[in-house]
Design a protein around this nucleic acid. Structure first.
Lengths: 187, 187
DNA sequence: AGCTCTAACTGAGCAATGCTTAGTTAGACT
DNA sequence: AGTCTAACTAAGCATTGCTCAGTTAGAGCT
């Protein structure tokens, strides 16, 4: 198979390598279609070793999705130079989906929706976005407001994804509409 | 295991039985945690027979989700007696999630989001809701309008689900907010 | 340079599960 | 009663998630 000599890596580096493989493979394939055999083969290691770092395939999957979430939150950080603090929150998120739409769907609309760990990652992402929004528009966070803002983020996400197949609608159109909507809502 | 005598059923009836089992089992369990062995055992048949009706486990899963979608569309049909045609579309949908929220999430947020057949079922549901909405408010269906209405439905769904853990917010609150939003949007 | 020792790593093997197929039999129709 | 279709079974195969007893890279010490 491989003529490579066996090589030892420090645990953190190996983990990173395996997660990186997952990020690439799971962008185009659901988790049940990716065998640990394949991951091990790409990494050039044995199946057994993968289970040393991730005791369960599910644990591996969780680690990969968590990495994808960190990547998104880092990429979609609000632009502090933007004159409109609300736009500063929405715009980079929609732009991220514009660039990585298919991957976004694979990681955040795929997978086992019922799994508590995956849900926790999604919840954490969503809460971060909601908090950024609340901070940007300065609204008091009652239960109803939170539900409203969370719903509004679902709307933004949906529009950003649908836009991928409808190039006549621009990123700016989506951002404009989203911002206008939340402003009217406050009246 | 079972002392039942072997019984022949007409294909349509057997299919219905198997799908019904799927509807019950998959309401609490993701598809990868339900083995065909278990379905067969509940139905009192052999594994092999299941594959006669559903050549693939995935085909079985698709059939079950499709049945769930039909059930939803039937239950959330607009009330023709409602004075407000937009409310008539939204209200029964939110009420359905109020009653079957966990099941709704299992069938429509669980599963493999990337599978094209499952996506087609979701798309079909969504399109139906969008068309009902377009008909209710009488708006011209440009690409942007469709994207907006689809986004708005994501918002409605999100609020209806979040409400399940926040009983201080009523079904009426969600419907009111949704209706108000779409009306302001048209201005 | 050689010795030692930790832990990164392998590979054989187990159990569960999706799927196949050669054969069996319920039960409808003569 | 006899026949015949197709609903049904059961044994078995291949894959895959996971385990574990053993191997060895390679860092630290002398």
């Amino acid at each position: 198979m491989s003529t490579e000599k066996r090589r030892r890596l420090p645990p953190e580096e190996r983990k990173r390598q395996l997660v990186a493989i997952g990020l690439q493979e799971l962008a185009t394939r659901p988790i049940h279609a990716l065998s640990v055999d394949r991951v091990a083969e790409i990494a050039g290691i044995s199946r057994g070793l993968l289970f040393r770092y991730f005791p369960t395939k599910q644990d591996y999957y969780v680690a990969v999705v968590a990495a994808a979430a960190r990547r998104l939150l880092r990429a979609a950080v609000p632009d502090p130079d933007d004159a409109d603090p609300l736009r500063a929150v929405v715009q980079p998120f929609v732009a991220f989906i514009d660039r990585h739409g298919r991957h976004y769907q694979a990681f955040f609309h795929g997978g086992f929706g019922t799994d508590p760990q995956i849900r926790a990652i999604h919840e954490n992402m969503r809460n971060t976005m909601v908090e950024r929004t609340v901070a940007a528009i300065g609204i008091e966070p009652t239960p109803m407001t939170r539900i409203r803002i969370r719903g509004w983020w679902s709307l933004v996400e949906s529009m950003a994804i649908d836009r991928l197949d409808e190039p006549s609608v621009t990123v700016g159109d989506v951002v404009d509409h989203a911002v206008r909507l939340i402003r009217e809502e406050r009246a």
